[in-house]
Design a protein around this nucleic acid. Structure first.
Length: 838
DNA sequence: TGAAAAATCAAGT
DNA sequence: CAAATACTTGATTTTTCA
């Protein structure tokens, strides 16, 4: 009732607040706001976008209503209590108030637009904006007079200002200019914090301390020149003529009297904070011919507000005195403070709070209505407090990419786009050498409703294929959930997060066994070529010091702490191959079947949670038998023993595995590296799996609750229902792990484990295998044996050795696909990169 | 009850 | 010729699920 509906019905302006013009920004004074809002509304009304905005607005109103109900229930007693707590915290904060630092926030004026105008002087007299017809990033001050501003779609801007020139964004250009500006920043604070390309926080305290003793010459700067150096290809516009900010305003306020000099003239700056900042801005302008605004204050929050105060091309300072700060805060609208957005503003307004002093007065109430973090934030604001310590480069937490497009309803197309996004993202990730465990898919349908779906894997990913495997599953679930209707999308995005933190990134001098066993890539060195998950694994760990070669086990603690996420190098390699194989099978099935539901996921190696049981639907069994058949087709011929490297003709895998076992027994025992195998129960006899966990649960390398199941089987399990105990023995995908628990078990099945065993739930405990070692004999001299081709390598350089193993493994992958799967009509390309998965 | 997922808010362009 | 509202990141809050 008292809460305004989506649109307030007062005097002519019934425009959604979210759509309406925000004219509190610089360059927007004295506009005909009503007229502008009317045009915006006309252009928006009835659109799906607008409808969604209405919907969101209603949601906010509901929240407000809830809040008001809560407020009504608050008792006097509660308020009193709350007030006590607020007062307590207030005096605590007051006691700790820090006024000793000089924090500066610098913000370039209409940055992108200014750069574009510099590059193309014809633009400088015209209203222009940077962006596209669908969205503007920023506009010049000319255009702002028409109400054209950042975050406004271009086609609406055109209605406001038909002559508007829209220039596409050119980030490389902005970055280059930004770099020049940052050079100057670092003269005043080497640890400055960039907030974006055109914004930064500086702590000038130290600089000012030193500056006091600087001679005049150190504070003298000259007009021009630098500009030409920095922009050799750009005509130096006409800044020489006007002195200041010719690009933005003819009537540019000359903020520093000392600046009105002629070309080449020396300008001397004083030692105060204001003078230093003025100097900095002067240098920025001389160097780039662009202007900046700045705020000087005792903390970041205030500095940020200040930099907006005298925009453009001005600066404002709040002296470091408590009283001045309080006065400044008094009438400041809360919305001006960074961190208070549209929604918070609206909620506060509903409580009658607009200014910061009102905020302070209502703190007791707010502490009862908002979360602790929220009201603490509010309290800081109301006291004029903010951070006085500028954080250095904090670690990135996520990376994503998303795209908007014309309606897309075709699933095939959607998968293909999804892959494309994964590819782009993988590229970016690899540029920074990052790998993350969580993959998030973002979808926006044509009604503008946004959905995100995430899945956290047991290991880190960074390649196109790895990300896609997870992303496509998430997508599939969504497609299935509305089928047979199509998903009608207008945006799709993929994000990777949960990067390993610095701790986990520590290379942790690992033993060669650790490397083989757990094989986790060291993300800090995992700059790998796209699509080659295998590669980096080897290189990253190649550094393991030789002195560790003899180590035969990794301390339990270490294993626990480093987590379950890691597969061994070989496990990964194998699981990858298996994955591809499975995928191919499934693809085949899918392409030949009308039932596209549910089955694909069963074959997927990395999905985390699904488990298919034998109670599944017909289509599932169909898929399985199909997979089985196609596997059988390729399973009965010739095998290469990875130990003796000979071609072995075997009737079945059991026979072949027996051969390998014999081979191994021979060499391992000889090397005296075999632990007492009897200590470990024979897994085969325990495990008679009656189900086929083709699913993702198989891919759980380790569950966090099973700290020691580190050698659990990775990746996919395409196992076959237990028929005959012996025959159904599981052929582990995990190379080493199986040695440990199954001396009788096959060790490496030719066509990669068409069946496998033990899902992560397996109760047995597998030990770190000391059995298998790449060391043969002494640790002196070249003595490394490749576990794939089984040949003694003539090097003891681990890097070289690993490279060799890599080659071996990759070769196999290629061979496999060339050979065994040529009969598949729909097979994926060998290593990676098949555009369509379904 | 706690972690993961999902949604929401906010900030910059 | 008409239609047409972005992208990236971090933080916080809410929901869900075991």
């Amino acid at each position: 009732m008292e809460h305004q509906g989506a649109a307030s019905s007062k005097s002519g302006e019934n425009v959604l607040s979210s759509i309406a013009l925000n004219d509190n920004k610089a360059g927007m004074e004295g506009l005909d706001r009503d007229k502008i809002n009317k045009i915006i509304l006309e252009a928006s009304k009835g659109s799906r976008f607008y409808e969604n905005e209405l919907k969101k607005d209603r949601q906010v109103n509901q929240r407000i209503e809830k809040m008001m109900e809560q407020k009504a229930k608050i008792t006097k007693e509660q308020m009193k209590q709350a007030q006590v707590e607020v007062d307590k915290l207030t005096s605590e904060l007051e006691r700790r108030r820090e006024l000793g630092r000089v924090i500066v926030h610098v913000d370039m004026d209409a940055f992108y637009a200014a750069v574009e105008m510099m590059d193309c002087p014809e633009l400088k007299d015209k209203p222009m904006a940077v962006g596209s017809m669908s969205m503007l990033s920023t506009s010049n001050y000319h255009a702002r007079r028409f109400g054209v501003r950042a975050a406004m779609p271009g086609f609406i801007a055109k209605k406001l200002c038909p002559n508007l020139v829209i220039v596409p964004t050119n980030f490389d250009k902005y970055k280059a200019v930004s770099a020049q500006v940052r050079e100057i920043f670092s003269d005043y604070d080497p640890h400055f914090m960039p907030a974006s390309l055109d914004e930064a926080y500086l702590d000038m305290t130290e600089h000012l301390e030193q500056r006091k003793h600087w001679s005049e010459s150190l504070r003298t700067h000259y007009m021009c020149d630098a500009k030409k150096e920095s922009h050799p290809d750009v005509p130096a516009v006409q800044s020489e003529r006007d002195g200041l900010s010719p690009l933005l305003f003819e009537d540019s306020p000359s903020s520093s009297p000392s600046l009105s000099g002629a070309d080449g003239k020396a300008v001397v700056f004083g030692t105060s904070a204001e003078e230093a900042v003025r100097e900095m801005r002067f240098r920025i302008e001389q160097k780039t011919s662009l202007t900046a605004s700045a705020g000087i204050a005792p903390n970041m929050m205030l500095a940020k507000v200040c930099s907006d105060k005298k925009k453009p091309n001005g600066q404002y300072r709040i002296p470091s005195k408590r009283k001045v700060v309080i006065d400044f805060i008094k009438d400041l609208p809360v919305r001006k403070v960074s961190g208070v957005g549209k929604v918070t503003e609206k909620m506060l307004t509903a409580l009658g709070i607009v200014s910061c002093s009102q905020l302070g007065q209502e703190m007791a109430l707010l502490s009862l209505l908002f979360s602790e973090t929220s009201w603490h934030h509010f309290l800081h604001i109301s006291l004029g407090l903010g951070s006085t310590y500028i954080e250095r480069d904090s670690e990135r937490k996520s990376m994503s990419t998303e795209r908007t497009f014309a309606e897309m309803s075709d699933a095939e197309e959607q998968y293909s786009l999804c892959r494309e996004l994964c590819r782009d993202l993988a590229q970016d990730l690899q540029k920074e050498g990052l790998k993350g465990k969580t993959v998030t898919l973002k979808l926006k349908n044509v009604q503008f409703e946004v959905k995100t779906r995430a899945s956290t894997l047991q290991y880190t990913v960074c390649t196109e294929d790895e990300i896609f495997v997870a992303a496509k599953d998430l997508l599939k679930v969504e497609i299935d959930s509305v089928s047979p209707q199509p998903l009608r999308l207008r945006l799709m995005g993929v994000r990777v997060s949960s990067f390993l933190n610095a701790e986990e990134k520590k290379p942790l001098q690992r033993s060669i066994m650790g490397f083989l066993q757990k094989g986790g890539p060291d993300p800090s060195s995992s700059v790998q070529c796209p699509g080659s998950a295998l590669k980096a694994e080897a290189s990253s760990d190649a550094i393991s010091s030789e002195s560790h070669l003899k180590t035969t086990s990794v301390p339990e603690q270490t294993l626990k702490s480093r987590g379950h996420q890691q597969q061994s190098f070989f496990q990964k390699a194998q699981s990858k191959r298996i994955q591809q194989q499975a995928q191919t099978c499934v693809n085949e099935f899918m392409s030949g079947s009308a039932t596209t539901n549910k089955t694909a996921e069963t074959a997927d190696a990395t999905k985390t949670d699904l488990a298919i049981t034998d109670t599944q639907s017909n289509s599932t069994s169909a898929a399985l038998s199909n997979i089985q058949t196609s596997l059988e087709n390729t399973s009965t011929q010739c095998f290469t023993c990875p130990v003796c490297n000979r071609e072995i003709k075997a009737a079945n895998l059991v026979a072949f595995n027996q051969h390998i076992d014999e081979c191994l027994e021979g060499s391992a025992i000889k090397d005296n590296k075999v632990p007492n195998m009897d200590a470990y129960p024979d897994e085969c006899s325990q495990e008679k799996r009656k189900e086929i966990p083709l699913s993702s649960s198989e891919s759980r390398i380790l569950s966090s609750k099973e700290p020691f199941s580190n050698v659990e089987k990775p990746s996919i399990s395409i196992s076959v229902p237990a028929v005959d105990d012996d025959e159904s023995c599981n052929f582990s995908t995990s190379f080493f792990s199986r040695r440990t628990s199954l001396s009788k078990q096959p060790f490496f099945s030719h066509k990669e484990t068409r069946s496998c065993e033990s899902s992560s739930e397996a109760s047995h405990v597998t030990r770190i295998p000391e059995a298998f070692t790449v060391l043969s004999g002494d640790t002196k001299g070249p003595s490394l044996t490749c576990p794939v081709c089984s040949q003694l390598q003539s090097t003891d350089d681990l890097t070289l050795f690993n490279r060799h193993v890599d080659m071996c493994l990759n070769q196999e992958v290629l061979l496999e696909f060339r050979g065994s799967h040529s009969h598949l009509d729909h097979s994926d390309a060998p290593a990676h990169k098949s555009k369509n998965c379904f």
